[in-house]
């Protein structure tokens, strides 16, 4: 489904980007391009540099080396607000929404619609409630009550509200930071469905995850980070789920570990068991 768009120029392009904190290289020589209508999955273990990479992409950190272009122009954002204006929206796993605020207030938080002249300028509550409801319907989300606190929604629904919000406010690139990490199987499915919905709506999606199975379900391009460097960067066509799982799990390291564990485990336990049975008999 992405073949038609694949030829288009990347919306977002990083070339040999690096970032150091003191003498620690958090990220080295990472190149990445994100196209409209494509899901780019970033995988990696804890400490692989995923968070640093997202923070550079979303404008929270400035990269030290390399170049970072958004729509052909050098990225020059220093706050989440700026990044939003550049069309880059980040949906963080745990800090996307304010649990006690109603759905529609969360939807418009930071971009509230107002009517009337100052000092009587006030929220356009009717319009905000209507638009929030419409946008969620468009994504196929059924929220029973637009006034209910977001905290009462399920984990998957909350992520989807955040995604719908980003799309409504004109995001061209959507960064999802481990959206499925804290979710059960069914809820993860819900989120994955909306990731593909966002892609079909023409957004470039960056999907950060631990889980190669989730990544493979929706991804068009896969990037694996290891110790701050690119371990793998390849399109879906050149990769099977097994390759991805293998790479993600640590590849060769895991093989070695597997052998080692096998050697101690099976025979030894069997011997002990046999010995015990003999004693009992």
């Amino acid at each position: 489904m992405t073949t038609t768009i694949e030829a288009s120029a990347p919306i977002l392009e990083l070339t040999d980007v690096g970032k150091s904190f003191g003498n620690i290289h958090a990220l080295r020589d990472v190149s990445l391009s994100v196209r409209a209508g494509e899901v780019t999955c970033i995988l990696g273990d804890n400490g692989a540099g995923k968070s640093t990479l997202i923070k550079i992409i979303s404008g929270l950190y400035k990269h030290d080396t390399g170049t970072y272009h958004v729509a052909g122009k050098p990225m020059n954002c220093s706050s989440p607000r700026d990044a939003l204006d550049c069309g880059i929206a980040t949906v963080y796993q745990d800090l996307a929404l304010v649990p006690l605020l109603p759905v529609w207030r969360n939807f418009f938080l930071g971009s509230e619609l107002t009517i009337g002249p100052w000092p009587f300028r006030r929220l356009d509550v009717a319009a905000m409630r209507r638009i929030a409801d419409e946008e969620l319907q468009k994504m196929g989300i059924h929220v029973p009550d637009i006034d209910q606190p977001v905290g009462t929604l399920s984990g998957g629904q909350r992520q989807v509200v955040a995604i719908a919000r980003a799309i409504h406010f004109g995001a061209k690139v959507l960064i999802l930071d481990e959206p499925t990490a804290a979710l059960g199987v069914k809820q993860s499915g819900v989120v994955l469905k909306y990731i593909s919905a966002a892609r079909d709506a023409g957004l470039g999606v960056i999907f950060i995850t631990h889980n190669p199975h989730h990544a493979y379900l929706v991804g068009d391009h896969f990037v694996i980070l290891r110790q701050g460097m690119l371990d793998l960067s390849s399109p879906r066509a050149e990769l099977t789920l097994d390759d991805l799982t293998h790479h993600m799990a640590g590849g060769a390291e895991l093989e070695a570990l597997k052998h080692e564990l096998q050697r101690i485990d099976v025979p030894d336990l069997g011997a002990v068991h046999d010995a015990q049975e003999k004693e009992n008999a």
């Binding site: 989440p80 939003l84 963080y92 304010v98 006690l100 938080l109």
Partner: peptide, 16 residues
């Protein structure tokens, strides 16, 4: 105000 008290980081992330 509600957002700053409810989840300051989330509020900041959307530009409050």
């Amino acid at each position: 105000i509600y957002a700053a008290g409810g989840n300051a980081d989330a509020a900041r992330a959307v530009g409050v």
